[in-house]
Design a protein around this nucleic acid. Structure first.
Length: 945
RNA sequence: GCCCGGGUGGCGAAGUUGGUAGACGCGCAAGACUUAAAAUUUUGUGGCCGCAAGGCCGCGCGGGUUCGAAUCCCGCCCCGGGUACCA
């Protein structure tokens, strides 16, 4: 019978002791120790800690404690991101002050956070609503304003005509109506405070590469920024004005058969008197302003648009007159808000052209090729095309697990080129390849795993010269195949999909077709132009430059990323520290008047006016400080601004003279690990990365990147497997759980659910948590099993356990670390353990169950905290196994097992297998063709019956 | 729609430089203890066939490569996150 422990008493006792001892306060930087800055996303004080907060804060605490036990000075701060909409909504609903609501929430949540027993560095805390915090948010804004990083610009907002105010996307219902008044929401351009984040777009893309982040997050960030190389080209309209379009495909200029402007494009308003169908156009503009952006871009939805009657444009390539449309698949905020439409080479343009019966003119050829599977060691794709000099471009795309073989298996004495020539002859039936030259190798975007460099994906391009006398049998029309009209280049990884229905028998015919089709162009950036006057026959990459130059265009990058609109017509946020002089010019509020306090005399119920506009005190304050006729800015800042620099305040939270000294930054930055949820992988990470770069540009920061490493956690679901929500009634209250089974159990259960660094979803399971409680109870009773002598295998198991726990904590696989300790306990409960082993187990467990282990440590007679001990180390020799059981396969199927020494040689193992009665019978009547032996893993015997 | 993830027993999962699929925990079943229950404890537990030995099938679905595939390649399906004023 196990002793049960009283978690309520133990946890309370030790939390108080740790607090009075200041055990976790970080204090000054201790230069004798390595530093580590572990950051978790600061919570919004919604009023109640939920189980997701536990998952976010208590599980990384395991790592923090582990590192401290390794002698590292680990900064693990916590604070509150306390401005935001929910406080204002609660205030409106319950007629309270947002500050009171927020502060009482923070006080309550602080108690809840304390109940975790985490090793938080509370001496470094801060909160975004603290005037000493937002003072610096404001100061940085004024610096950005002075350096033109912050500016007054135009932004697109959700405008509710009913409430007469801007509303959040979240407040827009799925039918595009306002959640408060059900009016239809309109997109509206309004003057906005903007941050010039696009100025940093290149740095934000380029600096991300060296970071120790998961590739998928880097990918998300890059995609969000969406850099595309292209060109701006001016088209002259019949009204005499130029319109600048952006295109990523200037090489297709000659295929532009119409022009499309975003409905919001300024020229539409400017020349509305020239538009003959203005009523129809006006109607369309209104309708599209009422559509969500995602709907406008939805490729599956039918394209809409209206022709601007009375206006045409001149294609600067060929001087053709082409019609001008407005269509909402073109966005005002991307590129220049105007495009040249090339239906032959853009899917969206093609769909639009089909609907409006516009001409489609192809100006590059199409992809040709076929998937091959020849012989044992290769599979690949050939693409062939011909340029104007009568040369064939042959592309061979190859993906193989073992190694890359250009063109396939080399025969004796053959080099790569000879090999490819031979195979091309065999495969195509053409015998007239006379010369073949490797042009270039392309490494596809793929990172080889360590030690396996040969396995990367290649594409290799060869030029093959062909005797031109033998081309009579190639005659097909470019652009036409059984696959229909091609409207885009097909990238290498889509070739399989494109060609999958082609059978092996058609091979020779297909490749002939491919060669013929290739008279037009190709894919992968090397296309050849058609129907483009003097550019015919030129490679499309060259044509991009040449055509842009010819028509006076400019090669540019454009970004999907838009400048950051930070103004909010809300009360509960950091006031934008700007005042306007009587002439309406904006001036930053100088440092001596910061913090520019949020006024208290405000009615924040929505009336259509920004809440701060209603403050008499703010008006008066402005006039007093700056003079009569001066007026305050009445907008507050997006809360993403507050959370863009909180990690800088943590490290210097009492500094009254600076937001964060360079000294503190040198000491603590960069953040070594930033734990957080996937929901912040794009916007928050991008904004905060930007913020530091902007500070650095102004000489206010030391580093260019804040987060050296990013780790995502999964999501905790309700017991029913759905996302927790009050309406579903599946919310798990952590306080109840802690009361019932204790903080250590809750923490360990969350750690045990699955690997921490993976973005899976984990349903909460009441039975599962009971299992962890049982485990801790067994630990509590383990001192009954103490004995003086080591049992057989105890030392080996102990060292294996230390090894496993150590290795797993380092990679945040707390689940398997716990499982290793369970295996240890399962064993020693049967055989007993020495006091030494027992104490090491407690130390291993200390980061996971800090209260219980501290209690047992004290019970064992120790007078100092277990959390100040060094983490146990293992001896690799003692952790080794002297035998290993491997699987025996026959023709790839497992037919038995055999226990051998890990270092046994293949012939020894094979002999042992042949001596085994059970396997002998299977082997005796057969011929062994091949034996594959992987030491420590398997022995596979390939036989023929 | 677009971008990024995830999918392995009844459940959470382990196992990924390709090498015995299901460690550990939950649940379930049977036994011990108990007047009984709870708690505790022992044993068993992927599915199908078989008394057993053993066999066949199994990692969302369909193909492929390989002596060998959860793992690599191609094509799909379902679920989750983000989508710029929720934080």
């Amino acid at each position: 019978m196990h002793k049960r422990f009283d978690h309520r008493e133990i946890e309370k006792k030790w939390q108080e002791k740790w607090r009075t001892d200041g055990l976790y306060d970080i204090g000054e930087r201790d230069q004798t120790k390595e530093k580590e800055y572990v950051l978790v996303e600061w919570p919004y004080p919604s009023g109640n800690l939920h189980i997701g907060h536990w998952h976010a804060f208590a599980v990384p605490d395991i790592y923090v404690r582990y590192r401290r036990m390794n002698g590292v000075q680990v900064l693990y701060p916590m604070g509150f991101d306390a401005f935001g909409l929910p406080a204002e909504n609660a205030a409106i609903k319950h007629k309270l002050n947002p500050r009171e609501w927020t502060e009482s929430n923070m006080a309550y949540m602080r108690k809840q956070l304390d109940s975790m027993g985490n090793a938080f560095s509370w001496d470094k805390t801060t909160s975004s609503t603290d005037p000493e915090y937002y003072k610096w948010t404001q100061w940085m804004f004024t610096k950005f304003f002075e350096h033109d990083i912050a500016y007054r610009g135009e932004g697109v907002v959700n405008w509710c005509p009913g409430c007469h105010t801007v509303i959040a996307n979240e407040q827009v219902q799925s039918d595009n109506t306002c959640e408060r008044c059900d009016s239809i929401i309109e997109k509206k351009k309004m003057p906005q405070w903007m941050i010039r984040i696009t100025d940093f777009a290149n740095e934000l893309i380029d600096d991300i590469e060296p970071l120790n982040w998961p590739d998928h997050i880097k990918e998300s960030q890059k995609n969000w920024i969406g850099r595309s190389k292209g060109a701006e080209i001016d088209f002259v309209l019949s009204v005499g004005e130029k319109v600048t379009i952006f295109t990523t495909r200037p090489d297709t200029l000659f295929g532009a058969t119409y022009l499309v402007l975003a409905p919001e494009h300024e020229l539409v308003q400017k020349y509305k008197n020239q538009i003959l169908n203005l009523t129809e156009v006006g109607q369309y503009i209104k309708t599209s302003s009422q559509k969500a952006e995602a709907d406008r871009l939805d490729a599956s939805k039918e394209k809409t648009g209206v022709k601007l009657e009375g206006i045409t444009a001149t294609n600067p390539g060929n001087n053709e007159q082409i019609p001008v449309y407005i269509a909402d698949y073109v966005l005002a905020g991307y590129g220049t808000g105007a495009i040249m439409a090339v239906p032959a080479h853009d899917e969206r343009d093609f769909a639009f052209a089909k609907k409006f019966s516009l001409p489609v003119k192809q100006v590059v050829g199409k992809i040709c090729g076929r998937r091959e599977s020849i012989g044992k060691h290769r599979t690949g794709v050939y693409g062939l095309l011909q340029n104007e000099k009568g040369e064939y471009l042959i592309q061979h795309f190859k993906k193989h697990n073992y190694h890359w073989l250009p063109g396939g298996g080399l025969e004796d004495g053959e080099d790569h080129e000879e090999c490819l020539m031979r195979e091309l002859k065999e495969e195509t039936g053409f015998s007239n390849f006379t010369n073949i030259t490797k042009l270039t190798e392309i490494f596809l975007d793929y990172t080889p795993k360590a030690g396996n460099e040969s396995a990367r994906n290649h594409s290799i391009i060869y030029f093959a010269k062909v005797d031109s006398s033998n081309q009579g049998d190639i005659s097909l029309t470019p652009g036409e195949t059984e696959h229909g009209l091609s409207t885009e280049w097909v990238p290498p990884d889509k070739i399989d999909q494109y060609l999958r229905n082609t059978s092996m028998e058609e091979r020779s015919e297909f490749i002939k077709t491919a060669i013929a089709c290739a008279e037009g162009g190709n894919y992968a950036g090397g296309g050849i132009l058609l129907n483009s006057c003097e550019f015919d026959g030129i490679n499309s990459d060259e044509a991009k430059v040449a055509i842009t130059r010819k028509v006076g265009g400019r090669l540019t990058n454009t970004y999907r990323l838009r400048d950051w609109s930070i103004g909010r017509q809300r009360y509960w946020g950091t006031p934008i520290p700007i005042v306007y002089d009587p002439e309406g010019r904006a001036h930053p509020v100088p440092l001596e008047h910061l913090p520019w306090r949020l006024p208290e005399d405000v009615d924040f119920t929505p009336t259509g006016e920004a809440p701060l506009a209603k403050s008499a005190e703010l008006k008066q304050r402005t006039e007093e400080l700056f003079g009569a006729g001066w007026t305050p800015e009445v907008e507050t800042m997006d809360t993403f601004v507050d959370s863009s620099w909180y990690y800088l305040r943590y490290i210097d939270n009492h500094n009254a003279a600076e937001f964060s000294s360079l000294e503190a930054q040198k000491t603590w930055l960069p953040i070594d690990i930033y734990f957080g949820g996937a929901e912040h992988n794009t916007m928050h990470l991008l904004y905060s990365r930007f913020w530091l770069k902007a500070l650095k540009r102004l000489g206010l920061a030391e580093h260019a990147e804040p987060y050296a490493r990013r780790v995502n956690r999964g999501l905790i679901l309700g017991p029913d497997g759905n996302k927790m929500s009050k309406s579903k009634g599946n919310v798990v209250d952590p306080d109840e759980q802690v009361e019932r089974v204790g903080a250590d159990t809750v923490k360990m259960y969350l750690a045990f659910m699955g690997p921490y660094g993976e973005m899976a979803n984990y349903p909460w399971d009441m039975g599962g948590i009971a299992g962890l409680r049982r485990f801790l109870e067994r630990i509590y009773g383990l001192s009954d099993h103490l004995k003086n002598e080591m049992s057989e295998g105890e030392e080996n198991l102990l060292h294996k356990t230390i090894k496993k726990v150590t290795e797993d904590i380092k990679v945040f696989k707390f689940n398997t670390a716990i499982s290793a300790m369970m295996i240890f306990v399962n064993q020693v409960e049967k055989t007993g353990l020495t006091k030494g082993s027992y104490e090491i187990l407690l130390q291993l467990l200390a980061p996971f169950a800090p209260h219980l282990t501290e209690e047992l440590w004290a019970t064992a007679g120790k007078t100092t905290s277990i959390h100040t001990c060094a983490f146990p180390t293992f001896d690799p020799e003692l952790a080794k196994n002297d035998t290993v059981t491997i699987g025996v396969q026959i023709n790839g199927k497992v037919r038995g097992q055999i226990t051998v020494s890990p270092s046994a040689a293949e012939n020894e193992v094979l002999a042992a297998v042949q001596a085994t009665e059970q396997l002998q019978t299977r082997l005796s009547e057969s011929t062994i063709l091949r034996v594959v032996y992987v030491p420590g893993k398997i022995l596979n015997i390939v036989i023929k019956d």
